[in-house]
Simulated assay, not measured.
Amino acid sequence: MGAFVAGALLSGQSRMNGELASISGHGLDAALWSFGSGLALLSLVVLASTRARSGFSGLRDALRHHTIQGWQCLGGVVGGLFVFCQAYAVPVAGVALFTIGVVGGQTANAIFVDRFGIGPAGRVGVSRSRVGAAVLATAGVVVAVGGRVSGTSSAVVLPVLLAVVVGALMTVQQATNGRVNVASGNPFTTAWLNFAVGTTLLLVLAVPGAVTGAFGTPSSVAAPWWAWFGGLFGIGFVAISAVAVRHLGVLQVMILMLLGQLSAAVGLDALSPATRGHITPVVVVGLVITLAAAGLAGLAASRAARRTAAAVAG
């Protein structure tokens, strides 16, 4: 359930940051606001919570004893790139094509991330069920949003390619965040580290544009009130997924997140009269296919768990 909610939060964040980018005139404005506001909120949580602060001690000990590597603490780099690509790509390619690109990268790479044991669940073998779940999940997304893609041109090629790359990197981020969460013992510590690293990256990216005058203050801040909560949604996404990946593995978390993304997208469309007509039978069929993929991934995970338990008992 947690991974499903994380996916829904990600879908909502895409809508918010895309709206901010369209109004401000620069995707980096939206990305900096999303990560900067999230970092500010998390800093208040860390200051107020003894358990969150103690998580840094646990993480420091894990680094000292080499139970976790320094590069595994840099998941925020991927988070910063994702939010920047999100703000840049959604206004150009639309949510549909952006989602297809991200999901394609996620599902293709999640199998390899699990296979090489990058996440805290350890190595998970490549089985026919897991490959089938990944293929089925991708098919579900294509069916659900494919009918909504029209009038595409070469202008969307780069945004979609970036979405594929950042989607693939997100699976590595989820895996390393899971390891950081095990070491720190607190999801808010994990989230703070992600947002601090991501905000630093985005500030570095803003320097050349600020020096040359290509990047400055937003052209407008007249955004709807709901568009300003991308940072809060990002906190929920990082914290929940960091816990979920420890127990479910990267592939299953990604598929459940995908289902959450699609369901939230349909819900958001239903709330708006301008997009209510997008909820067609084709979209419903896509959701059903994705649900089947999540069930297949869950079945594969439970079989693997039973085999592991039997091996330990034997």
Score class of each variant (00 low, 15 high):
residue 8 A to H: 12
residue 18 G to P: 10
residue 19 E to N: 14
residue 24 S to P: 07
residue 29 D to V: 14
residue 31 A to E: 03
residue 43 S to V: 15
residue 47 L to K: 13
residue 47 L to Q: 13
residue 48 A to E: 09
residue 57 S to G: 11
residue 58 G to V: 05
residue 65 H to R: 15
residue 65 H to N: 15
residue 66 H to M: 09
residue 67 T to D: 15
residue 67 T to A: 13
residue 73 C to Q: 00
residue 74 L to Y: 11
residue 77 V to N: 12
residue 77 V to A: 15
residue 79 G to V: 12
residue 82 F to Q: 15
residue 85 C to P: 07
residue 87 A to F: 03
residue 102 V to H: 10
residue 111 I to G: 06
residue 116 F to D: 06
residue 124 V to M: 08
residue 125 G to V: 07
residue 133 A to F: 06
residue 137 A to I: 03
residue 138 T to C: 08
residue 141 V to A: 05
residue 143 V to D: 05
residue 143 V to A: 06
residue 152 T to S: 10
residue 156 V to T: 10
residue 156 V to N: 05
residue 161 L to N: 05
residue 165 V to C: 06
residue 166 V to E: 05
residue 171 T to F: 01
residue 173 Q to F: 04
residue 175 A to R: 01
residue 179 R to K: 14
residue 179 R to M: 03
residue 181 N to A: 11
residue 181 N to R: 11
residue 182 V to F: 01
residue 193 L to H: 09
residue 199 T to G: 02
residue 200 T to K: 06
residue 200 T to M: 09
residue 206 A to N: 00
residue 207 V to G: 07
residue 209 G to V: 00
residue 215 F to Y: 15
residue 215 F to I: 00
residue 219 S to K: 14
residue 219 S to W: 03
residue 230 G to D: 07
residue 234 G to D: 04
residue 235 I to L: 05
residue 236 G to K: 07
residue 240 I to G: 05
residue 247 H to P: 00
residue 248 L to K: 06
residue 253 V to T: 10
residue 253 V to W: 03
residue 262 L to V: 07
residue 262 L to H: 02
residue 262 L to D: 01
residue 266 V to F: 01
residue 269 D to S: 05
residue 271 L to F: 02
residue 276 R to I: 02
residue 278 H to I: 00
residue 282 V to P: 00
residue 287 L to D: 02
residue 289 I to P: 01
residue 292 A to G: 14
residue 293 A to D: 04
residue 294 A to W: 04
residue 295 G to D: 03
residue 311 A to Y: 02
residue 314 G to F: 01
residue 314 G to A: 10
